[in-house]
């Protein structure tokens, strides 16, 4: 097991390198950079005084170096103007737009981003598991049809539209604002039990909104997996031996069906994280989503680069956890054999 974890962690290093290179390439795609654009704008209005300062900044952030050197400086594998000082050393870069270190700009939003994504994954697990089992064991019942229909609608409704509809509905029929993270009166207040409860209450709707399509997908998968198992001979044998229905279900078919279920959650994480970004923008939640949007629009490259990398790492960690869970459950995987899907 230890060997497996170690191998899995080592594998993440090249993955991270490739991803960071890809992200750096993407954020460098727009023509020019923040400071060159500023300089051009200042030239246009004829202000030469501030240009010197901006030129200095360009040097300071080594924006004048070639692409690969800048990339290596950014991740901290190459000495920049201040020696080795990049992501690896814990320097997340500088936000030109806010004129602050990236750390201070995104810092407050990171915990909530993690909490929101974690809550969503938990929600998907908790809701889809019992419903999937119910739908499979009572196939073609009214409940099964109902959940299937709900599932289809859940799959087809894009989460940001669902957020919009819910925002409208709550506002219209309950006169309640569900945007934001807490009720307005708690903003800037010290942490208290009431504030915590308010935050929790505001987390419910986004969690449901982000998790709905994932839950729908998971219900369908679990139902299909379990149905495959339920029609196998060993189930009939168990029943013939007089095992009670519940005992039989938990003891054999469920254990077989749960492996692909957990593996699929890993595959689902990228889309959940994607969902959390756009839903946060729509519901104005203080996660990295809205910051990313504004950073992209103003070409604040180090800020957007860091957020993209953070989101990617979050996904990778989620997939790592689901892989480890799978290894705990399935000896074939942790012993390095081939996984049965």
């Amino acid at each position: 097991m230890l060997y497996y974890i170690l191998r899995r962690l080592l594998l993440m290093i090249p993955t991270l390198l490739v991803i960071s290179l890809l992200i750096f390439f993407i954020i460098e795609l727009p023509t020019g950079d923040y400071i060159t654009n500023q300089i051009a704008a200042l030239r246009a209005i004829g202000e030469e005084a501030s240009i010197a300062k901006l030129e200095f900044l360009r040097k300071e952030f080594s924006l004048d170096k070639p692409f690969f050197e800048r990339y290596l400086i950014w991740i901290g594998l190459w000495p920049g103007p201040h020696g080795l000082d990049g992501l690896i050393q814990g320097n997340w870069g500088w936000s030109f737009e806010f004129d602050k270190p990236v750390e201070q700009v995104v810092g407050p939003t990171l915990p909530l981003t993690i909490v929101l994504n974690f809550a969503t994954i938990l929600f998907v697990y908790i809701v889809s598991f019992p419903i999937g089992i119910y739908s499979a064991t009572r196939q073609y019942s009214w409940g099964d049809y109902g959940f299937t229909l709900l599932g289809y609608i859940g799959l087809a409704t894009p989460n940001f539209l669902l957020a919009l509809l819910l925002l409208y509905g709550f506002n219209r029929w309950f006169g309640m604002s569900i945007g934001g993270l807490m009720d307005p009166q708690y903003i800037d207040q010290p942490w208290s039990v009431d504030k915590m409860l308010s935050v929790l209450a505001h987390l419910i709707v986004p969690t449901i909104v982000i998790g709905t399509s994932g839950t729908a997908a998971m219900i369908r998968r679990l139902r299909a997996n379990l149905l495959d198992e339920l029609h196998k001979q060993y189930v009939t044998t168990g029943r013939a031996k007089g095992l009670k229905e519940n005992q039989l279900l938990v003891k054999y078919p469920l254990r077989m069906a749960i492996n692909p279920f957990i593996a699929d959650i890993g595959n689902l994480i990228p889309s959940l994280v994607s969902g959390s970004v756009i839903v946060s923008v729509v519901m104005s939640l203080p996660t990295v989503g809205p910051v990313l949007l504004s950073a992209l629009q103003s070409q604040d490259q180090f800020l957007s680069g860091f957020i993209l990398l953070f989101v990617a790492v979050l996904t990778l960690i989620g997939m790592l956890i689901s892989d480890l869970l799978l290894a705990v459950l399935d000896p074939r995987i942790r012993l390095g054999g081939r996984a049965a899907s």
Binding site: L22, I23, P270, I278, L292, L296, S304, L308, A312, T315
Partner: peptide, 23 residues
Amino acid sequence: RLIEIMRSLPELPLWMALSAALP
């Protein structure tokens, strides 16, 4: 490997970054 890495990336933020790069 490339496919695995691409599949592990959240699509929407990358779409956002790429389309923000359109002139």
